[in-house]
Computed example of a mutant assay.
Amino acid sequence: MHFYLATSFIFPRSLRLRLFAICFVATHLPLLCYIGWGAATARLALAEVVTLTLATVAGTGLALYGIGALLSPIQTLAEALNARPDDSRSLPQVGDVIASLYAGVQRAAATTQAHMNDLAIAAHEDPLTGVANRRGFLAQIEALPTAQRKGCIALIDIDFFKQVNDIKGHDEGDRVLAAFAGRLASQVRRADLVARWGGEEFAIFFRDGAEDEASWALARIAQQMRREPIGRVNGRIISFSAGLSRWTGGPIEEALAAADAALYDAKQSGRDRVCRAPVAISATCP
């Protein structure tokens, strides 16, 4: 590419003429040396110079024809890749076979990168609810600066969700999961992170949130679930249980384990409630 750009001043609109010029100079070096030697020694024969010149011109033309034939498949490929010719405007020579091929390769690389980005998003997003999945949740927390790796972790479980699937079917279960994820995401701050932890279980990271604030936020969501239920099963409004743990920046696994233990206590205490798991203190429920 460096040589291609360096020679772009030679017939800038025609790669074939540029190739001819380079081949002509390269193949005539012996002839130029002969002419220089003949002039220096006064042994220059005009007939020999003419014969050699014609022979080298013919050889250059034959080489150029062969190069053109070899480049024809590349030209065809470049035209196939050039879906949008205006993309080549930033290249040195628009319409040039190498420029066209280069533009096509750039578009192919951009398409590949876009597919890779889509795969990365799919790997970190739950397709049913549109919120982050467990991997995405942990990856986003891991990407935070150390100073922001603190707050509260909540693990949340939809109460009696199995009955929704068993009685109303999996389609209704999927609708309830999506509705619940939307309810959580709409009721927390933009700085907070909501994820589907797995099955009917969700997680929330309240970034820099005090434990009281996080508990009040969960209580507010629970009240809204009662006022505006996302569904009912066996005549009962669909509710949730939650375990809340303070995270001060240590290993997040410890905070998750504490929140999970608090969630277990919430279920054991009758569900539809939030239990806290303060550091070094057993979980407490309201």
Score class of each variant (00 low, 15 high):
A277Y: 11
D87Y: 11
A122R: 14
E253P: 01
C152R: 07
V50Y: 01
S269C: 13
E253N: 09
G182Q: 09
L32P: 00
Q75C: 11
G270N: 06
R134D: 06
A55W: 12
G95P: 06
V97Y: 06
A80V: 01
D166H: 14
C152F: 13
T284W: 09
V188Q: 03
L15H: 04
L193Q: 13
F3D: 09
L81D: 04
S282C: 09
G231V: 05
I35D: 00
Y264M: 01
I158E: 08
C285Y: 00
N117S: 12
L71H: 01
W37G: 04
F137W: 13
V194D: 08
I237M: 06
R207N: 02
K150W: 07
T27Y: 15
G130A: 12
I74G: 00
M116Q: 15
Q224S: 13
L119M: 14
A6S: 09
S269K: 15
P30L: 07
D96S: 11
D126E: 05
L91A: 07
I121Q: 15
S241Q: 02
K267D: 08
T51P: 00
D126L: 03
D174T: 03
T53F: 11
S14P: 01
G61F: 11
T56P: 00
K150P: 01
R276L: 14
S186I: 02
A139Q: 10
V279H: 11
Q75T: 11
T51G: 09
G249D: 05
G169H: 04
M1T: 14
P92L: 07
F3Y: 11
N234D: 15
V94R: 15
L64Q: 09
A214E: 05
Q93K: 11
E201H: 04
R13D: 12
A266I: 00
T51V: 02
I10V: 15
I230E: 06
P30Q: 08
A259H: 07
